Lab assay of single mutants.
Amino acid sequence: LVRYRTISKIPQITLNFVDLKGDPFLASPTSDREIIAPKIKERTHNVTEKVTQVLSLGADVLPEYKLQAPRIHRWTILHYSPFKAVWDWLILLLVIYTAVFTPYSAAFLLKETEEGPPATECGYACQPLAVVDLIVDIMFIVDILINFRTTYVNANEEVVSHPGRIAVHYFKGWFLIDMVAAIPFDLLIFGSGSEELIGLLKTARLLRLVRVARKLDRYSEYGAAVLFLLMCTFALIAHWLACIWYAIGNMEQPHMDSRIGWLHNLGDQIGKPYNSSGLGGPSIKDKYVTALYFTFSSLTSVGFGNVSPNTNSEKIFSICVMLIGSLMYASIFGNVSAIIQRLYSGTARYHTQMLRVREFIRFHQIPNPLRQRLEEYFQHAWSYTNGIDMNAVLKGFPECLQADICLHLNRSLLQHCKPFRGATKGCLRALAMKFKTTHAPPGDTLVHAGDLLTALYFISRGSIEILRGDVVVAILGKNDIFGEPLNLYARPGKSNGDVRALTYCDLHKIHR
């Protein structure tokens, strides 16, 4: 019993810090008490220290592992850092350059016999395009090294910054494609005289377009951006097909006994025919423009016929181009109408809503002055909100995010209106959640004399007048207030005048 009563005193000691020596009952000389009392004092002292730490809000209350900052290894790049964003855009520009100039170089340097010394005699450094290609190869190699040090988000939505895990993730992902696209074939085969082989191998750079397509997928929600990307894709495919079309004609031209190829026909049409040795002929500019003209006309199913396939190889390629053109029509131009419709969806919704308003007016036989006010209010409210119901949009977000959005939407009023000066951010967040926005066209009466005042109004834009009878008592403008002081009276009061809008007004109100 003594032991039980001794232990039962522990909660009292913990909360009230009572010393055991003052209790005459606990001072009985028993061996059990002498053993338990020192333990009680020690526990009391420890609990006292913990309570003191909690009340003082000291940093040592938290466990040590929670006080440590997340460790980022040296030379690790955050995937959302500004440097990584700028670097990704730079790589994107280099990939676009590669997609345009690599097929052009591979096709127009394929057994090209233009006048001038061969590239091997001039030297590697004197070729501007080769120098640019070398810079692109170096940048792609540097990009691989950067990807080995860039964080990523795993399946659990955690940012991984450990170098080993980053390397394994990159090896399992895009490393092989990036490595093949970054191989400097110019340096590996330079001086061997195989410019045709170098041009063909350099087309491996186009593998990076797969990554670019995935990154550009984030802009699919913007109709104008999608339309622009589709047109660029169409032009890029036409450019690639033009390079292939020229390569076919250029390879067949020296081996044909009869002059029936499209390059021969082009030379005869523009007065620059090929001679018996295969030299001469149109310039590279004429060849490229004509090839691009043929691919565009074939892809769009126009086909004027002034550039036509004559050999079997050219006919087979033309059939493939027609098939590609039909697929592009289905996948690209078939979506253009939907994209344009999405661009004008706001206008369509406006006309639909206006039609419903006019049908309501016609069905209920609203008189002319009231009908005009109804239409003007709808037009003004639509121009202010673009038909978007803010309350319906915010309803799907958590309250903390709703408060931040409301604070942002009402920031101008909260910053410049005098009653809100000096208020804490928590108070402003709470008030912003209570605001209701209303609009009024010129001549609209917001409050009639004798109406119950259940709200306090803040003028965000425009001006109003307060009338008693036919006498203008006051004219209020931006950041002015009218209405009933909230919670100042037990019952809502009545208006002693009319409140009429002089201009288009936007008002925020808080109800009782």
Rank of each mutant, 00 (worst) to 15 (best):
L323P: 02
Q365I: 01
C406Q: 10
E221W: 04
K425R: 09
D186I: 09
L67D: 04
A242F: 01
Y384M: 05
P282D: 01
L292R: 01
H351N: 05
L374V: 14
I332T: 03
L145Q: 01
D257P: 14
S297P: 01
T352K: 12
K425S: 12
H416K: 08
K111Q: 03
G426A: 07
M231I: 09
I144C: 04
I144G: 01
Y350S: 02
S313I: 14
E114N: 06
G173F: 04
L370N: 01
V357L: 07
K436L: 09
Q127R: 05
S308E: 01
E195W: 14
R218Y: 08
Q353W: 04
T150N: 01
G334L: 03
E314I: 01
L428T: 12
N275P: 01
E158K: 13
L129D: 03
K84N: 05
R208T: 10
V159G: 01
I244V: 08
S277G: 04
R211A: 01
T347V: 04
R371V: 03
F378E: 07
V357F: 15
R421V: 09
F171Q: 01
E195Y: 10
R214F: 01
Q253R: 15
F360C: 02
C232E: 01
D186G: 14
K395W: 03
Y377N: 13
P103A: 01
P441D: 06
H73W: 04
T295I: 11
Y344P: 03
Q341T: 08
F101S: 04
I284Q: 03
T102P: 01
A430R: 09
A403G: 10
R259A: 15
K66C: 03
L197F: 05
I388L: 08
A338H: 15
R205K: 09
V132C: 14
K418T: 05
T113L: 03
E375C: 05
I366T: 01
A106Q: 15
F360M: 04
L236R: 01
K215F: 03
C232W: 01
Q253G: 08
L134G: 03
A440H: 14
I166Y: 01
N154F: 05
F296S: 01
F234S: 01
R214P: 06
A225R: 05
P367S: 04
G281I: 01
F185D: 01
T424D: 12
V302T: 14
R356S: 15
G267F: 04
L67N: 07
L431E: 02
G123F: 15
I237K: 01
M231V: 05
D178L: 01
M390A: 05
S345A: 09
K418N: 11
F190A: 14
I141A: 09
A213F: 11
K111M: 11
Y384I: 15
